[in-house]
Design a protein around this nucleic acid. Structure first.
Length: 583
RNA sequence: GUCCCCGUAGCAUAAUAGGAGAAUGCAGUCGCCUCCUAAGCGACAGAUUGGAGGUUCAAGUCCUCUCGGGGACGCCA
């Protein structure tokens, strides 16, 4: 670890050891009393308890060692035994110059591992709705964060492309276009390259078919038969299904593109279908399957369960497999084809019981060895202003593309009309994405939060727009400096409290990233970005950077600005937000 | 009914394995553009952290009770 705070933590740890105390974890945190110090160590009180000594005596012993270190400009003990630390300008400047050359010094590093992240889960032929937003935003950001920290990450969109909805859509198409070759069972020739339906058609068809199935048993039965034939890959249905998926996926991709979300894998339930028999047989061979109320189930109870966990239904009483089974087959597939160290599911918290059951079966049966971590990182439900699950004014579900369009039209009201059309378009797209992501990632992952379209459209204050505007302004400053051939090779010193504040903020980057990663939530990064940017903006508003006449000072200002810019760019990139050059 | 989560300023949210004076934005009041993009900067005001007990040097955070909201509890995914 080369970064400033982590290095000091190591140092402090060895000092504590030298003083004769044993502690496994030394954490320095930013001070809650800036008047007393810049950072604080709070561990003395617990040491005192463990060793039954006066905390003040222990703190004083530790401080005596720290006083000899030139890293600090001030060390003191306060209250029941808080150790307060402040850093010398020299130490900070020196560190900034290291970071300036390689921003990666200012972050931690994970052990090498391979992680599959399952986030997305859109259904083929169904419009994505606002509920897909969090999964996409959080999943993508966690993926980028893990990558930034050195993990190998594979994102899988995991389409819902294989259930009865597919049968329903095909049935409805059959009723509307009985003349299509796909439905002619005697037909042996090639099928056309294109089908004359659009994604919009598909999105309209599904709700209609679904309603019909609820009202008409014959219709439902027919859909069931088609689903069955599709799953047996009967030629015509299978070919049509492929076309439907093609049309739908193109649309899903373009929507995810707008959100800067991309997947390494575009697998779906249909891909693990071929392993379902293997999984069922494997579990049967292990003796884990029993019959219950006409279904095949796997018991997953444990003795220490507080609640009775119901058995996992492997095969339903009507003979079809449940989606638990599909998920197990997918894990089976992933273990076989990728052998990951961890599999993460970024899915709404309400599905936690489902994942608990699935994971238990995987571990219990040995499909997944115990050293591989299966993790459901549930996220909070998006509620409407009334605290109940979000609905549009007319009680319907708001589609994701609708939400994006709404935000975009808000953004366009404020855009600079002097730029050419193409650039305006790029700016409004980037801003829309930034606004949407930042608002969504700002609350803690597990918080149920109020989904408020007005909030998502708000361009003032703590928003993606603020971050992009400010970051763009730094970039433009640096570009101007470059045009003038101003040197910006090093931070030469600290000339105002503003710079000190910026540097102290920059020291927090590694812990912010690690905390975000460990808790799998992006709110720390979001918050931090605002703080760093705000700290820089105070500096920007109070100190003339480009027009500073002293070249030594100017060089320092510019160098520091460069570090802030690179840091912002890195963090925004983790959130999935692109930086703009102009706006 | 059982279990889980939540309750923080008018609103929306923070608070790092319990740490010092509960933070941020919006909304409100008031300042700041002859000068690097004001989509910005600054100041003020706003809170018995739902309530009552308890543990602790220290509680928004842990425990008990209570009130209010949400969710999950075998064949929808």
């Amino acid at each position: 670890m080369n970064n400033f705070i982590y290095k000091l933590e190591e140092k402090l740890k060895s000092i504590i050891k030298e003083c004769g105390y044993d502690t496994d974890n030394v954490t320095l945190v930013t001070s809650s009393r800036p008047d007393l110090g810049e950072y604080q160590y709070n561990g003395v009180m617990s040491l005192a308890k463990a060793y039954k000594k006066n905390p003040n005596i222990i703190a004083t012993e530790i401080v005596e060692h720290l006083l000899q270190d030139s890293t600090f400009s001030n060390v003191n003990v306060a209250g029941p035994g808080f150790i307060n630390l402040s850093f010398s300008d020299e130490a900070l400047t020196e560190y900034m110059n290291e970071v300036k050359d390689d921003i990666n010094i200012n972050k931690g590093q994970l052990k090498k591992k391979k992680i599959i992240i399952d986030y997305g889960g859109p259904n083929v032929a169904k419009a994505l709705h606002v509920g897909h937003l969090r999964s996409a935003n959080i999943g993508e950001a966690l993926k980028r964060l893990a990558k930034e920290l050195g993990a190998e990450v594979i994102g899988d969109v995991h389409l819902g492309d294989w259930g009865r909805p597919m049968g329903l859509i095909i049935l409805e198409l059959k009723n509307r276009h009985p003349e299509w070759k796909y439905f002619d069972e005697d037909y042996n020739g090639e099928y056309p390259d294109d089908i004359p339906i659009t994604n919009k058609d598909l999105e309209e068809i599904y709700p209609i078919a679904s309603t019909k199935a609820k009202e008409d048993d014959n219709y439902l039965e027919e859909a069931r038969i088609i689903t069955y034939k599709l799953q047996k890959k009967e030629r015509g249905y299978y070919a049509l299904w492929k076309k439907i998926v093609e049309v739908s996926v193109a649309n899903i991709k373009s929507l995810y593109d707008k959100l800067n979300v991309s997947f390494e894998l575009w697998n779906g339930e249909s891909d693990s279908d071929k392993y379902i028999d293997d999984v069922v047989n494997y579990l049967k061979d292990k003796g884990l399957v029993c019959e219950s109320e006409g279904a095949s189930v796997v018991d997953v109870k444990k003795d220490d369960d507080k609640v009775e966990i119901p058995p996992l239904i492997l095969v339903k009483s009507n003979g079809s497999v449940s989606y638990e089974t599909t998920d197990i087959a997918t894990i089976w597939e992933r273990m076989k084809e990728y052998n990951p160290d961890e599999i993460w599911y970024v899915v709404d918290s309400r599905q936690s019981l489902h994942f608990e059951q699935v994971f238990r079966v995987c571990y219990k049966s040995g499909i997944v060895p115990v050293n591989v971590k299966l993790d459901h990182m549930g996220f909070g439900t998006m509620n409407g202003k009334d605290g109940k699950p979000f609905k549009t004014r007319d009680g319907g579900v708001m589609t994701l593309s609708n939400l994006i369009d709404n935000v975009k039209s808000e953004v366009e009201k404020k855009i600079n009309n002097n730029l050419d059309k193409e650039e305006q378009e790029k700016i409004s797209n980037t801003l829309t994405c930034a606004v949407l992501k930042y608002a969504d990632l700002l609350p803690n992952r597990s918080t149920d939060y109020i989904f408020d379209i007005e909030k998502f459209s708000d361009m003032n204050g703590k928003t993606g727009v603020y971050l992009l505007y400010s970051t763009m302004r730094i970039k433009s400053l640096l570009d101007r400096a470059k045009e003038n051939n101003y040197s910006m090779n090093k931070v030469t010193g600290i000339y105002s409290p503003y710079e000190k504040d910026i540097i102290l903020k920059l020291l927090e980057v590694p812990s912010v990233l690690d905390k975000s990663f460990n808790e799998r939530t992006l709110n720390y990064i979001c918050d931090y970005l605002y703080e760093l940017t705000n700290t820089f903006n105070s500096f920007y508003a109070s100190v003339k950077i480009l027009t500073e006449e002293d070249p030594i000072k100017r060089e320092s200002y510019l160098s520091l600005s460069g570090i802030v810019f690179k840091t912002n760019r890195m963090l925004l990139n983790i959130l999935g937000i692109d930086v703009l050059e102009r706006m």
